Simulated assay, not measured.
Amino acid sequence: MTEFEFEQQVTALTQQMYRVSASLLRSPQDRQDAVQECVWKAWRKLPQLRDESLFKAWIMRILVNECKRMHRAHWREVAVDEIEIEQPDGVDNRLRDEVLHSAVMQLPEKLRLAVTLFYIDGFSMRETAQILRCPEGTVKQRLHRARTALRILLEKEV
């Protein structure tokens, strides 16, 4: 992979990378640092990437590891924080999205990360499993548990 191709791939994934880091880190500065450090590590370790078609899952795995490293280094809990996503002008849509976002952020980290990668960022089941370094069955189980928990949380909101 050339430097230009690497830059194009990273630019295309920046928003997704920020969303994933937001599901793991509280501070916007920490999120930005994690994404930046991830890109730097990915560039340095690029020769270790065996299959360029797996670049997206590979760099997301680096990002998850970096977020976890930062979390351990700061010795603090991952807290619920707002992900800034551009919303349509409709108040009802905004309110629905805020309620849904709030419910997702109440999920335990493992469930929240699976939901973010699969439903929000659109990774396949296999890619999500590779990023999380677990079997596909585990991802399916986490998504099922997350949907059940969200159903309960959202019923309380109504």
Rank of each mutant, 00 (worst) to 15 (best):
R76M: 14
Q48H: 08
L25M: 04
E82L: 12
F6E: 01
Q29D: 12
C38R: 01
I83T: 15
P28L: 05
D33W: 01
S102P: 02
E5H: 00
R19K: 03
L150V: 08
E5P: 00
A12R: 10
R142L: 15
D30Y: 11
D33F: 10
E98F: 05
I83S: 08
V91I: 14
R44N: 05
A22G: 13
S53W: 03
L25T: 04
A79H: 03
S23G: 10
A12Y: 08
R50Q: 13
V80M: 06
E109H: 02
N93G: 07
Q8N: 08
M105E: 11
Q16P: 04
L46A: 10
P28D: 09
K41V: 06
H74D: 07
S21I: 08
R72S: 08
L132H: 08
C38H: 03
A103F: 02
S124E: 00
I62Q: 13
V64A: 10
E5R: 14
L24M: 15
F6N: 00
L150P: 08
M60F: 14
I152H: 09
V99W: 13
T14L: 09
V99F: 13
V35H: 00
W75Q: 14
L143M: 11
D89R: 10
E86G: 02
L143Y: 06
T14F: 06
C67E: 06
L143T: 09
V99Y: 07
F118V: 11
K45E: 15
L143C: 09
M17E: 12
L132Y: 03
G122W: 04
R19V: 05
E98K: 03
T148N: 09
A103C: 11
E86M: 04
R76E: 15
A34E: 12
L95K: 12
